[in-house]
Computed example of a mutant assay.
Amino acid sequence: MQSVETHTAFIKAQAADLGFDHCGIARAVQLDDDARRLEQWLHKGMHGNMKYMENHFDKRIDPRKLVDNAQSVITLLLNYYPSEQQVPDAPRISKYAYGKDYHEVIKAKLNTLLVRMQETIGEVSGRGFVDSAPVLERAWAQRSGLGWLGKNGNLIHKQAGSFFFIATLITDIPLVYDGPVGDYCGSCTKCLDACPTGALVAPGVVDGSRCISYYTIELKELLIPEQMQGQFDNWMFGCDTCQDVCPWNRFSKPNKTVEFTPIPEILNFSTRDWEELTEEEFKRIFKHSPMKRSKFAGIRRNLNFLEY
């Protein structure tokens, strides 16, 4: 009969084989401390118009409400740091959106991992999540020893920085659990000082309703509030400022995931190229890109706002 240790080693080996950079595991329990913080954050309206964040509160804080008899939460990190950057002075795009939509890439890997677990370990039930369900990914990553939550709210890995996608696989089998690591931000406040809109209102607290990523991706209104003019630092889709200035990201290395190879237009388009882009061209070029989330109208709105 296989042991819990054998199962754990198998899962971590398969995660590496599928291209995940790091894997940590925590016991499935209710996240009481995180529940309190989330409740306060929502109460202060820091989620802006992202009303979906108010839904399924009980499921967000307890994985056992997402998977029957859940015992383990497996967290996986996938590096997205690019090997190339955009041409200078072009409207800026967050690095996570340089290549193919990470939802599609990671979901396939999670499904494969679960199938391999079922084939080798036996009867295993589980569900994989990538930004698509009420799961507190960063809390689970922290609990499973993959890093600490920086003052910018991002998970930071001591050897690799913060340019990672976080995926979660909740399963009903017991495993060997990893412990949390310390916080190594120290007295550094570079991210707090650099945020263009002052969205980092306190260490580890992000006012989502003031974040550039919120305005350029999540906000569905036709107009961005006038009071934000001149604060976007040329970011057209998302924002990486708080990560770019983080000293721990000096350890970031280019990712090895073929699907995250940058779309040439993202690297090479000038402001004029973006201005002349038609909706048909946008749909063709960015068919598999995270940028399709904003739709052509959203990109036009963001571009016009930068030029106002």
Rank of each mutant, 00 (worst) to 15 (best):
S209P: 12
Q243T: 00
F237H: 02
E226Y: 05
G238Y: 03
C246S: 11
T216S: 06
Q229I: 02
D178A: 15
A194G: 13
Q229H: 13
D233N: 02
G179K: 08
L223T: 00
L222F: 14
P225I: 05
V245D: 15
D178V: 12
S187M: 14
Y215Q: 15
Y214C: 11
T241N: 06
V206N: 09
G204L: 07
C246Y: 07
E221K: 04
I224D: 07
P225K: 06
Q227I: 00
S209N: 15
C188Y: 07
L223H: 04
S213K: 09
D244S: 09
I217T: 03
C195Q: 02
W235V: 08
S213E: 14
E226W: 08
V205E: 11
G182A: 12
Y214A: 12
P203M: 06
C242W: 06
F237W: 02
T197K: 10
G179H: 12
T197G: 14
Y177H: 10
L222S: 14
I224N: 07
T197A: 14
D240T: 00
P180M: 04
I217P: 11
V205W: 06
S187D: 11
D233G: 00
C195F: 01
W235R: 07
F237V: 02
L222V: 08
L175E: 06
P196Y: 07
G182K: 00
S187C: 15
P196N: 05
T216G: 07
D233V: 00
L192K: 03
T189K: 13
T189D: 13
L175Y: 03
C211F: 01
Y184L: 11
V181S: 06
S187H: 14
D244E: 13
G238C: 12
W235F: 12
G238R: 04
N234I: 00
G182F: 01
P225L: 08
V205G: 10
Q243I: 00
G182M: 01
G186C: 15
M228W: 13
N234W: 01
A202E: 04
T197H: 10
D193P: 14
Y184P: 09
M228Q: 11
V245N: 09
D183R: 07
G179S: 15
A202W: 01
C185R: 09
Q231G: 09
K190S: 15
